[in-house]
Write a protein that binds this DNA or RNA. Structure first.
Lengths: 146, 146
DNA sequence: ATACCTGCAAAGGCTTTGCGGTTCG
DNA sequence: CGAACCGCAAAGCCTTTGCAGGTAT
């Protein structure tokens, strides 16, 4: 996929800018994030990376995703107090979360909320919309008819 | 405050309905939630309850807030992977979160997003808007001018 | 060459759980 | 009286950190 390659190159470029070393583990983590639409947990990323590098450590994955977030190549997403999830899609988008199993999917909402730049003394930097619902799988498990 | 008393009575009524016992600790936790606008953490609730019942246990507070959530008298709110916070305001409202210190304040947004009842196979039950920004305190600490 | 990175293991928060004794209804 | 609840302590996640050796530039 062309897009993915471009983003990998952008990633390498970005690392150079920041003085970050380009290690196989880092590339693997970022590739996995790019190739996933499911907003994986650290554990899930770890399992994937292990397929390629069986000796990788969970701590490395934690450190890597944190680094990715700091340089703006990934976003941390947490809901329900469950484990953190990561997303390499840095578009302006929102999330729909299944209240049954916690699955997360992207959702695009064209309507703009135009929040004023200052509310209650807070200086606003952005907002996110979380839509809650039951995913197809959980609907079926709950009540095959709905 | 009249409203608060009403809500306390409603709480007792609700407990009776559910067969829950009305213990001093439970009342204390709920009263503290009602009297707070800051969406306190479990630890903070615990500190408050301790002023009244010095021998209360943190585990009890955890169990109580979970019970309150289950019967719909409180909501659990978590952001940024920090500790969970609780909110006895069950109105239809949203939150503004300080990206500096994690403080949470209520915000009312009149604009309706009218999300369709079904998106991508998900059956939608609701949505929440999280607005991010810097609270007055953090603004001052960061740059006294902004 | 050296600054950064990794793997390992240990420690750190936050939260939950098992148990015996206590309290509410 | 019996079921539900409490306090205590221990255990269970998830995540971070210190350290010694290894790697990219």
């Amino acid at each position: 996929m062309k897009l993915k390659e471009n983003r990998l190159e952008a990633f390498i470029e970005r690392c150079r800018q920041e003085g970050l070393k380009i290690t196989p583990q880092r590339i693997a983590v970022y590739e996995i994030l790019l190739g996933s639409k499911s907003h994986p947990t650290v554990e899930e990323i770890y399992e994937e990376v292990k397929k390629r590098y069986p000796f990788v450590s969970l701590a490395t994955v934690y450190r890597t995703v944190e680094t990715l977030e700091q340089v703006g190549l990934a976003k941390k997403v947490c809901y329900w107090g469950s484990s953190a999830r990561y997303d390499a899609n840095t578009d302006d988008h929102h999330h729909i979360i299944c209240v049954g199993c916690g699955a997360i999917r992207d959702i695009y909402i064209d309507r703009n909320l135009d929040i004023p730049p200052e509310v209650d003394g807070f200086r606003i930097s952005g907002y996110s919309v979380n839509v809650y619902g039951l995913c197809p799988d959980c609907r079926q498990k709950a009540q095959p008819s709905t």
